[in-house]
């Protein structure tokens, strides 16, 4: 069984709570190490001391909300963990892996910071970590996405991919 995040523009209010929660939930141990070693200082600047994450800023989240027509429409955009993932296809370092749940993940150890994957995601959902300069993306929070839990309206929800091979990804709700 493979799950994915289904978005419902009609329920999205553009509040960005999903992004705030995501930005705070990203535990970037790799970046933490880099900063800690390089700066040899306590984590005052770019990390929260108590949770080892960056802190709140929707721009650091790994999902987007597109606002249109003076906020008449809000459209959440999330990583699709594509079956034919262009990000994975273009990676020259084979840093991309698909895990047993079908999620498209980046192995930070293999990433060579070339940024090519960023260039080829049609939704611009691959980011460069500001500290390590490596590619980062949505990792589905091990199948229990923080954004979905935080959304107050059900505009993003966890759905099961059924009949994946028959191009039917409308899914059913978990």
């Amino acid at each position: 069984m493979s799950t994915f995040i289904k978005t419902n523009f009609d329920l999205c209010t553009g509040c960005g709570i999903c992004q705030l929660a995501c930005s705070m939930a990203i535990v970037d141990a790799d970046a933490w190490d880099v900063e800690h070693e390089n700066k040899s200082k306590v984590p005052d600047s770019d990390f929260c001391t108590t949770c080892f994450t960056h802190g709140y800023n929707p721009r650091l989240a790994r999902l987007k909300i597109i606002n249109k027509r003076e906020n008449l429409y809000h459209k959440p955009v999330v990583c699709n963990h594509c079956e034919n993932a262009y990000c994975m296809n273009v990676c020259p370092a084979k840093a991309y892996e698909r895990d047993k749940n079908g999620y498209v993940l980046i192995n930070a150890k293999k990433c060579v910071r070339c940024g090519i994957c960023v260039e080829y995601c049609p939704e611009n959902l691959i980011y460069i970590d500001p500290i390590t300069k490596k590619a980062v993306k949505c990792d589905m929070c091990n199948g229990d996405p923080t954004c979905v839990k935080a959304c107050p309206t059900g505009a993003i929800e966890l759905a099961v991919r059924v009949n994946k091979n028959k191009d039917d990804d409308s899914g059913e709700h978990v």
Partner: peptide
């Protein structure tokens, strides 16, 4: 037509329409 919210607000008191 639908609800809209300020940044970080679950109340969504704003109702957008046309």
């Amino acid at each position: 037509l639908g609800a809209s919210a300020c940044m970080g607000c679950p109340i969504r008191c704003s109702k957008m329409g046309a």
